Simulated assay, not measured.
Amino acid sequence: MAVTRVELAGRAYEVRVGPDLLSRLAEECGALLRKQAVPIVTDENVHRLWGETVERALADAGKTPRWMVHPAGEGAKSWDGLSRTVEWLLSEGVERGDHIVALGGGVIGDLTGFAASMLKRGCGLVQVPTTLLAQVDSSVGGKTAINVAAGKNLVGAFHQPALVLADTEVLGTLPEREMRCGYAEVIKYGILGDADFFAWCEEHGAAVLAQDHGALEKAITTSVEAKARIVAEDERETSGARALLNFGHTFGHALEAATGFSDRLLHGEAVAAGMVLAARYSARRGSCSLNDAERVTAAIDAVGLPSEIAAMALDCSGDELTAHMLHDKKMDAGTLPFVLLRGIGEAFLARDVALSDVAAFLSEQLQAH
């Protein structure tokens, strides 16, 4: 098991990565589960696959899980899903000193984390991410949110977990498409801040997706360590350092909005295509080489992630895609900063980007063949 500490001002927590953590849930959580009843929020798919494992793990420690099971999918990350979760937690008698377990992918982690941040002005939280994307990204760092009509993740709070348990065994039940989505966030860490890790991904991406144990643990641990360093430096995204983690996301969220936040384009797929767009736009502006942009594209292509928005048959224009960006939560004083590249491993925040130029660039990309 690999352990990474996320160091924050006056407090810290561990991210543990390894096999069979779910079957040792009570042991790993220890005193965080201070009552017999353990409130767990999950979705139908995860409950079907891993509910019995959790039941046994807790029963062996004399504890009883109390389940809140949401329908699977992005729809749970809504006002309705939040309201039902909070009301259920209250009905279960959850106290401020208790810890709620979020067992699932990014949707469940975001939803449960937001509910925990609100309940009695802040309850404890244990993140148990069950997708690669959640293990390397959304479960670490304390960002929680729901989606609203205006856009994705626009209502939320910073609420750090007390512990993150990333069990590599649970990834064995993930569909290949979900594994690829998670891998998009893995390779992101190389592109934005670690050229050597990007080169490692170019060579070992297939092994990660095939769930070779050594490659998978290295990919997750390296990603978590990278995110932990950035979160420790800029927990609430005020200095600009944490904003670098949004590489590919401004373009990606616009693509998600254009496809109705549906299964037509999953979040990791949108981020993958968004990273290609960000790299190409960086090359267009002259801040990075065309060769680096081509390496990013090739690395995305090599693992079966989408790289060409022209192939998505989007019913929109470049202007319409940039209009979606106006709802981005990173808007500041009417301007939208973009995370761009000076080269692989060197991302920066550009605050001088004209959306009209982005729209023209996207129009070109929509028509490219």
Rank of each mutant, 00 (worst) to 15 (best):
G97H: 14
R11L: 09
V17C: 00
G30N: 05
V303M: 08
T222V: 11
A254K: 08
V6W: 00
F114Q: 01
A302M: 10
R242Y: 04
C316L: 05
E28C: 01
P337A: 02
M1P: 01
R48D: 09
I191G: 07
Q160V: 03
A347D: 09
L362A: 08
V231A: 07
L119W: 05
I191S: 03
D60K: 14
K77T: 11
A311S: 15
R180M: 08
L290P: 15
Q135H: 04
R180N: 06
W200M: 13
L340R: 14
G51M: 04
A116L: 04
V15H: 00
V101K: 01
G252R: 06
H327V: 11
G214F: 04
V136I: 04
G345E: 10
L266T: 15
T85G: 10
G62I: 10
M68L: 15
E7S: 04
W50L: 01
E320C: 14
P19A: 02
V148D: 06
L355W: 07
G193K: 08
L349F: 01
E87Y: 10
R280P: 13
F247Y: 15
T250H: 05
A2C: 02
Q135E: 01
G124L: 03
A162H: 14
R295W: 12
G30M: 05
E44M: 03
A272V: 15
